[in-house]
Structure formats: C-alpha cells, structure tokens
Design a binder for these strands. Structure first.
Lengths: 219, 219
DNA sequence: ATCCAAATTGGAACGCCGCACCAAATATGC
DNA sequence: GCATATTTGGTGCGGCGTTCCAATTTGGAT
C-alpha cells in the first residue's frame, strides 16, 4: 500500500544518500515499485515533495523537548538552535531548501514554527516589546545562516569515516588558505591555525552567545 | 564574437529576468545566436557557469569603495554588508547560490573575499586575536543568513510596481499570521504589527549592530 | 452478495533539459 | 600560403518532470 508517509520516508532516504539531485521521480518509483502517476497523486510535483519533506524534517527537529521548565531563555534558544544544527548535519540538502522555504513561504509551518519557538524567548531576554520582531529576526537570521553555511556537502561516503572526511576537508581548506598571497590576504593567514583547530558546533554556540549578549543591550 | 564576458552578461540577464530555472543552455544559445558547444567551450558546464556568474556578481559588489580611511571598523563592515544586501536584492537567485558557494568552495574568491574583507575589521573592533576566526565567522554567518533570507522571489514582474509587490507580499504574510491560532502562536500575534511596519534594510542594520555589540564583549 | 462510484495504481508519451561529440569554419604563428 | 590551434554551430543521446489515461482496487449502499 502506497501512502504519503512512505513516499516522504523514501524521499528522505534518497536525499540523504545522494543529495538533492538523487531525488528523482523515477528513482522514487523504482524504490517503491510503483509508477510516477501514483506518486504525483499522493505528493504532487517534485518541488512540492521537497517542500513537504523539508517541513517534515524541520518539524521533527523542532519537536525535541524544550529545555527544562524554568530554564534561562538563552538555554531554550540554544536547544532549538542545536536541534536545527543537528538536523542539517544529518540532512545536508536542507541547507538550501530551508532558505528557500523561508523566502518563499513565510506563512508555512517551517518559518512560523521556528520564529514562534525562538521569538517567545526574547521577551524574557530583556528585549523591550517594541523590538521583539527585530530581535527574533536577528536570531533567526543568524541561526539559519550559520547552520546552512556549516552544512558539508556529500561526497561518496560509502564506507568512509565521516570524521576523516571532515579533517581532510579542513586540511585542504587551510592548506589552500595558507597558499594565498599574504599581502593580499593578511587576515586569512592570521587565522589559518584557528581554522584547523576550531569545532563547528562550539563556534556556533559562541556565535549564539554573541548575538544573545548583543540583544540584551537592545533598547 | 563570442566571449566569456558576453556569456556571463547574458546569463545574468536571464537569471534576473526569470530566476535560476530560466538559465538554460538553449536559452543562452538562442540569445547569443550560437550553439551549445560554443558556450560550453567558454564557460564549461551549466553549474560552472552559475558559480562563475555568482563570483562575478559578488566580486563586483565587494569592489565598492571601502568606507573612508580612518572610519570606524563598524562602518566598513556595514559597507560590505549593505553591498551584499543590495546585490541580492538585485539578483534574488544569489540567495541559494551564495550559500552553496560558501559550502562547497571555502577556497574560492567568493568565500575568501568576503571573509578577508570582514575579518580585517574584527581586530580593530577589540576582539582578541585568539578569537578572530570565531568573530569573523559569526559576522559572515549573520550577514549571509540575513541577506539570503531577505531575498524576495520572482513573480511575473512585467510592468508591475515592485514596491506594490512588496507591500502585497507583507500584507498577505501578516494577514496569514493574524489568522493563526493565538493560543498556539502568541508571539506571532504580538509582533504582526511590527512586521507590517518594519523595513528590511533597517532591520538588517539593527542586526549588525547587535552582533557588533556582542563581539566587542568577546573575551 | 452485488453493484457502482470513487480512490488508487502503473506506465506510456511528450516536451524539456544538460552534455558529449564532431565536422566545419576561422584565426594564428611561421 | 600553409599548417596548426582555436572557435563555432549543431546533432544526438540519455534522463528528467509532468500529464494523461486505462486498468485495478476499494468501500459503502442496497
């Protein structure tokens, strides 16, 4: 029996395995041993399916339990932010799709869900009500920007240690930075060491702390 | 005479007119009255062309004169940020392509150019050197996140006032927010008024001020 | 149990697309 | 003026998303 849920599930598997290009109607048809007509009957066009799938993954990520009651608002914001960070680490194709969703559909559950969940905290953060929209926007802009830009693109990861992949990636990048002309790129040379040693997740948390710190001073 | 520059120029026109989907090898061929072979000879595959075009636009945006010598580092950062903001306003297809470029090619002129230009200022901002990479990353994450999420997607804008489009867009969005269940979405209801009155560009500058403020306190 | 309308299925056909390939045309160095 | 390299325009192939449709299955009313 075919169902919307089974199609979405398979679509996510295809996307995780091979990126956005790997999600084709034909690949889906074969995997579910059915025809293209049946698929479009349940989930509409390919682009609709991508939106649906994005919504499913983001909603699941946001469904993680909130920080314990009575926690600082900053903690709850960190919980949401890290949930999105991890979701994108697991599903790199979200990087572009999430931005697209926010741009095209500010009314959809994805945009609204993230905004509501984060926005609720800004009052407790000490931001005056007249600035709530600015504050929430700044947080969402930073969080989505950071998680998207931290996504790592898929190589052929069959049987390869993903950590080795990551190290190799950063080594290559820092080597290239090292090779830049120091006169034209003094800053890149100054930080190439930090680049090799840094931890994405930790840096992400630092960034959130910076934004939160700035927000408490918003008047 | 065909040339790399002419192809890039036409590609940008097609992208601006119809979004990423409108850039096809066939459309380019017809517009330049040539064949697909000649095009791929000069600019490689379609994906390469998109990267090249992104690089061209971003480089041009970054080539804007820096803030006057002796200006505060915050001013120079604002100049760069607004240049990117305007570039994306003029070329909405950059929203996803820019993220892609940063993810896939941390070594390319786009990523490095933005990073270097912004990074140089963080020292003068009072950030200790050990934190330069964190500080620059936070700024870049916020700036690219904000400009991407502020991009407006193309409708059929032939002969339509873009400002009317924008108002219509925000009216529709705020109307939809208004329609949400107030018990489930108290925050969205609280800010729907601010949403209607806000100015993207001003809000963007507020966000930058917030981040800069937080950065000066990084120790 | 029977029947019928609605829901669901699988696949064929169509018009796109990017790209590899190539023979002709043109430019370039000698 | 010739030989070589560059540049051009076009064709053909495989793959894609979508639409359409005939066949099948389902579910409720009788």
């Amino acid at each position: 029996m075919l169902s919307r849920e089974r199609i979405i599930e398979s679509a996510i598997e295809l996307l995780d395995a091979g990126g956005e290009g790997a999600l084709t109607v034909r690949a889906l048809s074969e995997r579910l041993s059915t025809g293209s007509g049946a698929i479009s009957y349940h989930v509409g066009k390919r682009d609709d399916l991508l939106d649906t799938v994005t919504e499913t993954v983001v909603t699941a990520a946001l469904a993680t339990e909130p920080a314990r009651a009575g926690a600082a608002p900053a903690d709850e914001i960190r919980v949401v932010a890290l949930a999105l960070f991890d979701a994108i680490a697991e599903h790199p194709w979200l990087a572009t799709r999430l931005t697209l969703q926010v741009i095209r559909n500010p009314v959809g559950p994805v945009t609204v869900g993230i905004f509501e969940r984060i926005g609720r905290q800004v009052g407790a953060l000490g931001v005056p009500q007249a600035r709530w929209f600015d504050a929430a926007s700044t947080l969402v802009h930073y969080i989505l920007g950071a998680v998207s830009q931290n996504a790592r693109i898929e190589g052929d990861t069959s049987g390869v240690d993903p950590d080795a992949d990551r190290d190799e990636f950063f080594d290559a990048a820092s080597a290239a930075w090292q090779g830049l002309n120091p006169e034209d790129y003094p800053f890149m040379h100054a930080i190439v060491g930090q680049m090799r040693e840094h931890d994405d997740r930790e840096q992400f948390l630092t960034g959130i702390a910076v934004v939160l710190d700035g927000l408490t001073r918003l008047h």
